Amino acid sequence: MLIVLAFIILFHLAGAIVLFVATIHNAWWVVSPAGRDVIYTDLWYSCNSTCYPVENSHTTEAAYLQAVQASMILASILCCVSFFVFILQLFRIKQGERFIFTAIIQLLASLCVMIAVSIYTAEKKSFHVASLRDGSYGASYILAWISFPMTLISGLMYLVLRKRK
């Protein structure tokens, strides 16, 4: 049982790390113009040799981008809260009970990741100025999609898991 518990904790922490890296790292969109430096764009900045804020990110035209930003931050927070609730429930709930509250929080984190990445996928062209539209998805975008099933599976594991001696 201790091995299963260690696996669940490590899987949750791995999912949280992937989620944090996807949120923070600056490679959601990558543009490689001919003869110039590669431009990496994340949810807040576009960077080549210098970084500058994503154009119009503070306006109502960027409401989609703001929704992606908020959803990824909320998913990161919920994932951390879920881990702390799991540790607390590990010592508080009675033998034989399930980790329902932890599972609900983790499934909400998974839902937030799915919402954020889906919005980014659907509206990617509206986020970027014309010079950046001919790019491709970057590593952070892929990590965000990887963090979705990791948080979902983690939440489902908490639903199934019962406290034992």
Rank of each mutant, 00 (worst) to 15 (best):
S57M: 03
A144L: 01
K125Y: 13
A67W: 01
C112E: 08
I119G: 02
E123T: 10
I3W: 15
S49T: 08
F99G: 02
V18I: 13
A109N: 11
T23H: 11
K125S: 08
I3E: 14
I77V: 06
E55P: 01
H58Y: 06
R133N: 12
I142T: 04
S82L: 09
W145D: 06
F148V: 07
G96I: 10
S140V: 00
T102G: 06
L152D: 07
S82D: 08
I93Q: 06
V54F: 01
Y158F: 14
L108K: 01
I104N: 05
S131Y: 14
I73V: 03
I17A: 11
L143H: 00
G35M: 07
T102R: 04
A130P: 00
L111D: 00
L107Y: 09
P33H: 13
Y40R: 12
L132M: 15
V4C: 14
P53S: 05
A109E: 13
L19P: 01
I93W: 03
S140D: 05
W44T: 06
P33V: 13
S57Y: 02
V117I: 13
I105M: 11
G96S: 08
G15S: 15
S154C: 03
Y158V: 00
Y45V: 10
M1D: 14
I100Q: 12
L90Y: 15
A67L: 06
A116G: 10
Y64N: 09
I39K: 15
K94M: 09
I77P: 10
H12S: 13
G96Y: 10
W29I: 00
A67D: 05
S49R: 12
I142C: 03
W28T: 07
H12Q: 11
V30D: 15
I93E: 09
T50N: 08
A22M: 05
F101I: 14
I115K: 06
P53Q: 07
L132T: 08
S147T: 02
S110C: 13
Y45L: 09
L78N: 04
I100Y: 03
L111A: 04
S76A: 09
S154P: 01
I73D: 04
A27T: 13
H25A: 15
I73K: 03
Y45P: 00
F7W: 14
Y45S: 08
I104D: 14
V38C: 13
